[in-house]
Design a protein around this nucleic acid. Structure first.
Lengths: 242, 242
DNA sequence: ATACATTTAAATGTCTGACAAATGAAATTG
DNA sequence: CAATTTCATTTGTCAGACATTTAAATGTAT
């Protein structure tokens, strides 16, 4: 047994977490009150509370005050999961010094997986979003940061167009987490024109349901973006060497 | 401002979380002691502790007892992130009643994104793992559960063969979270033979660096697995209707 | 002076008890 | 019957205390 003696609050949190994951506790079911839990687990109330806060931090439970209040098993919603996913991915990249090319490769590889599905489904709403973002990206006077944000919005629309919430969830991290890295890049007018061109290619391909063409354009975009990142990083190194 | 008045512990946790994500607090840096934090934020120590437990649940900090102890910003490791990712993905699927086909589609779409990279890199270790799992899958007397576990191990090796930690992290959730769903399937000898055949196809393709062939085999495996899931679900419905 | 044992201070982990605040239901009142 | 008040329950917060762990400081003997 590799599970020796951690903190009591961690043990209790794990016990409740197991009960939720195994389905022993179902969505919207009310947990015993903190007082009851403290007698059940034979610990004090603050310890129980620490355990509950751990679970709340993972969106596994929600709490409500008042007479009929308590802690309830929370239905994990996609939006909440997105947030966690993005935070974790961002930290994973920044703390492990993942280089831009690796992050880029991962992101585009997964995006290409979505592109074929997006092309097959051709969702009008998401296509409209993509077109709108392309238009924004072409406007002069746009800051690099706003350009990056629009880029992220474009790619999220592309991903969401696959109409598969699991894919959207998984991709959210990869697409959003790369934004801080892309924000280090200065996009020249020529860079932007090329990116807009490729984005248009992608949108056209999806509109026509041509998955292969979308894949091809994404492939070129991967290479181009990776190149931009490499150049930006090199300049940054020359300007401020360690 | 959509961020009104949440719990104090949630606010404090968010403040510290922001400091970590923004880089204001760096890896391995020690946070002020609980007593200091409680005076800084003007709350009691239990409240500070609840906030710290929230962060600990997300692996953002670790705590250490003793004279030189305290709370330290934790370097988020891939393995820890895997665990979170798998738990979250599993719950997301089970709580939102994601159907098998959707989960399957997401998983295989992303796997196909990895296959090309795996084929390009042809990592010997991961190939050996894949071969070993294929061999195990062909042995008679293997339980359905063990077959599924081996299937997961095979696909994880395939994904890890892309040699991109970000991809491995993202895929971990998709690959592992589907196991509970696959465990509901009964694999006949014929099913297993077909799956082993396709797995062998994939391994061969990767060994030869043929990304297209790997993609093709994965595509077939997607359809086959999805079909198996549909059949299993239909039988289950007939046997135990609502 | 070095090696080992002891003490000590600092920090987290836990407990007790209390009060505040929210909230829905029951009791009361018009 | 409707509106209001009361009330019990539950979470949120606080204060203070003690237990436990840990490494550094101190002391002691070789």
């Amino acid at each position: 047994m590799p599970k020796e003696t951690r903190d009591l609050s961690a043990q209790i949190a794990q016990a409740i977490r197991d009960a939720i994951v195994s389905g022993e506790l179902i969505v919207d079911e009310r947990l015993p009150s903190e007082a009851e839990l403290s007698t059940q687990f034979d610990v004090s109330r603050p310890t129980v509370r620490e355990a509950l806060k751990r679970l709340a931090a993972q969106n596994l439970i929600r709490t409500q005050r008042g007479a009929t209040g308590g802690a309830f098993v929370n239905r994990l919603r996609y939006e909440e999961a997105y947030g966690q996913q993005i935070t974790t991915s961002t930290l994973l990249i920044s703390m492990n010094e993942v280089d831009f090319e690796t992050a880029c490769e991962a992101r585009f590889a997964m995006e290409r997986a979505c592109a074929a599905l997006s092309a097959a489904r051709r969702n009008g709403d998401h296509l409209a979003t993509m077109r709108a973002e392309i238009h924004r990206q072409g406007q002069p006077g746009l800051s690099d940061e706003a350009f990056c944000a629009s880029d992220v919005a474009f790619h999220r629309a592309l991903v969401d167009g696959a109409d598969n919430p699991i894919l959207s969830y998984q991709l959210a991290g990869a697409v959003e987490a790369i934004e801080p890295l892309m924000n280090m890049i200065t996009f020249s007018a020529r860079d932007r024109a090329r990116i807009v061109e490729l984005h248009t290619c992608i949108a056209d391909a999806i509109e026509q349901g041509d998955g292969a063409a979308a894949d091809q354009a994404l492939s070129e975009l991967t290479i181009y973006t990776s190149e931009l990142g490499r150049t930006a990083l090199a300049q940054r190194k020359n300007r401020a060497p360690s």
